[in-house]
Nucleic acid binder design. Structure first.
Lengths: 245, 245
DNA sequence: TGGCGAGCTTGACTTAAATCAAGGTTTGTC
DNA sequence: GACAAACCTTGATTTAAGTCAAGCTCGCCA
């Protein structure tokens, strides 16, 4: 697996614009940022951006890099994270198809406040900063949608802060698992879509501690695990275990 | 000091509109959310909101309350925080004059994701949700300003997450102190504008641990403290001590 | 001015979680 | 199908930070 990094300025691949434009328009209309806009507007957006391809594990941007534009994930997944000099990482969010990445930096023109890398082969639609600013200025609908995307993110950051500060690792893991499992009562099987090492970074801990947290939840009777498969045996118990320590 | 709490629905005080309108317009034009707007627009905003007065330590809203509108701090300060059942608190941010409070909930119409209380006697300008939505729809400028306010907040939340997850208490305290002190080199005196107990909640710890963190910084020669006065003796050392543990 | 109380500090102790080290398991590749 | 490389788990140890319990300091009010 080629893990060679690539700076923001490099262009992994740019597809020719014309034959695929309709496909792209369709894709962007799925994205919450642009959905519900008329074709002409989306066409304008498409004209001003381009597709970029990334291999699995490739860096999309690094914290501190100057921001030149923003990405909308077309398919694949992008992890946004902070890392310490000692090599520990805290995942801030994992963005999937339709979700924007790097828009905060693009808005302000500041350097990226965090790093981003792909978790799997990923394609993004990339819009340069100036074009993006034009679009939100001329399309109030887009600005409103962006506002609601940022609000949602603020809420999720606030609860991550709460959990990191006021809860223990086991509680945070329980929270995370509950958010992955769509929430019907009774037994329920969840297939993790990331490695446990990645899950540890998302929960804010190291793999060893994550492993012990899984043990604790299993010993309590809330779940069972086998590899990446998690069987939630007692959702309401798990909910109780997710409360502050 | 009357510490009696008051729900969001209660109205602490509503000033009569007319004679003070010009004063209010001036105040709002200072607020980053509305600055640079023409008088007519601001007048429209003023018409659709009202002033509210809060005593020191009074609850502005509680996490989970239904959100009815948003506040812009006119004077005083409001602390936004999360709290655990065990009574520990994590401060998310402290908002001063001109800054909006509760706008994320107001935008989405969701319950407040955190609680807020005043740190001192405070006056806010309060706009009901519907009026606020109207304003951002009809005033793209306001939407853009709100976007930049939310972006700034996201950046600060992201770095709080990073610090909580990847740094120790002493490092976080150093970060906090650096952000309070405007940043010229050489010796510098900072007067804390909150109690050390409040500072502990902002740094994400308890007063006992905060006290020991101050000791450590003092023993290292970075600063000296006396009551609420902090003398930064070696700013560059403090910056080094603020790096990840 | 004296005393009361909140806020702050200090010390001893406990607990949670990171680190270190090693062994086992899965996965993917040739 | 065998091997290597990640990935994951387990145990032992260390360290950071929270808790508990006093005692102190300072500002405020009677």
């Amino acid at each position: 697996m080629d893990k060679e990094k690539e700076t923001v300025t490099g262009q992994p691949q740019a597809r020719p614009g014309n034959p695929l434009q309709q496909e792209l328009i369709d894709l962007l209309q799925q994205a919450s940022l642009f959905s519900g806009l008329d074709d002409a507007t989306v066409l304008e957006v498409v004209r001003r951006g381009r597709l970029r391809l990334f291999a699995a594990g490739q860096t999309v941007f690094m914290q501190g890099d100057p921001s030149k534009g923003l990405h909308v994930v077309v398919h694949g997944r992008v992890k946004v994270y902070k890392s310490s000099p000692q090599g520990r990482e805290q995942t801030l969010m994992i963005m999937g198809p339709g979700e924007p990445v790097g828009e905060v930096a693009a808005l302000a023109g500041d350097p990226y406040p965090a790093s981003a890398e792909t978790l799997e082969p990923t394609e993004t639609f990339y819009i340069m900063r100036d074009a993006f600013i034009d679009i939100i200025r001329s399309q109030p609908e887009v600005a409103l949608r962006l506002l609601s995307a940022l609000s949602a993110r603020l809420r999720s950051f606030a609860s991550l802060i709460e959990d990191l500060s006021l809860k223990g690792v086991t509680e945070r893991l329980a929270v995370q698992l509950l958010s992955l499992a769509p929430g019907c009562p009774g037994e329920q099987t969840v297939e993790l879509d990331i490695s446990k090492t990645e899950l540890a970074a998302a929960v804010g801990t190291v793999p060893e501690t994550l492993s012990r947290a899984f043990q604790q939840l299993a010993r309590a009777g809330a779940l069972e695990t086998k590899g990446r498969t998690v069987v939630i045996k007692d959702r309401s118990l798990l909910q109780r275990l997710a409360q502050a320590k």
